Simulated assay, not measured.
Amino acid sequence: MVAGLVHPQGSAAVLEDLDQRPAKAVRIAVSHAEDPVTALAEIRRQLAHARPSFILLFVPSRLSPEGLAAALPAALPDAVVFGCTTAGQITPRGYEDDALVALAFERSHFRVASTLFVPISPVSIAEVVQQTERLSEQFRATPGRQRLALIFADGLSKQEDILVAALEAGLKDIPVFGGSAGDGLRFERTQVLRNGEFHSNAALLLLLETDLAFCGLGFDHFQPTESRMVVTKAVPEERLVLEINGAPAAQEYARLVKVPVGALSPTIFAENPVLVRNGNIYHVRAIQQIHGENGLTFLSAIDDGLLLTLGRGKEIIRTLDSGLTVTDRQGEPPDFILGFDCYLRKLEIDRKGLEAEASGRFRERRVVGFSTYGEQHLGVHVNQTFVGVAFFRPRGSAPL
Rank of each mutant, 00 (worst) to 15 (best):
R186Y: 13
F187I: 13
R189G: 00
R189S: 05
R189L: 13
R189Y: 03
Q191R: 07
R194G: 05
N195P: 00
N195Y: 06
N195E: 15
F198I: 04
H199T: 00
S200A: 15
S200L: 03
S200I: 02
S200Y: 08
A202T: 02
A203T: 09
A203S: 15
L204P: 10
L204K: 08
L204D: 12
L206W: 11
E209G: 02
E209T: 06
E209C: 11
E209M: 08
T210S: 10
D211M: 09
L212K: 08
A213L: 07
F214K: 09
L217M: 07
L217F: 12
L217I: 06
G218V: 05
H221F: 07
H221W: 04
H221N: 13
F222G: 02
F222P: 04
P224V: 00
T225A: 08
T225G: 06
S227D: 15
S227T: 15
R228Q: 12
V230A: 15
V231G: 05
T232R: 12
K233A: 12
A234R: 13
V235F: 03
V235M: 08
V235P: 01
P236F: 15
P236Y: 04
E237Q: 08
E237V: 13
E238P: 06
E238V: 00
E238Q: 15
R239N: 13
R239I: 12
L240N: 01
L240H: 11
V241K: 03
V241F: 06
V241N: 14
E243V: 04
I244G: 04
N245M: 02
G246I: 07
G246M: 12
A247D: 14
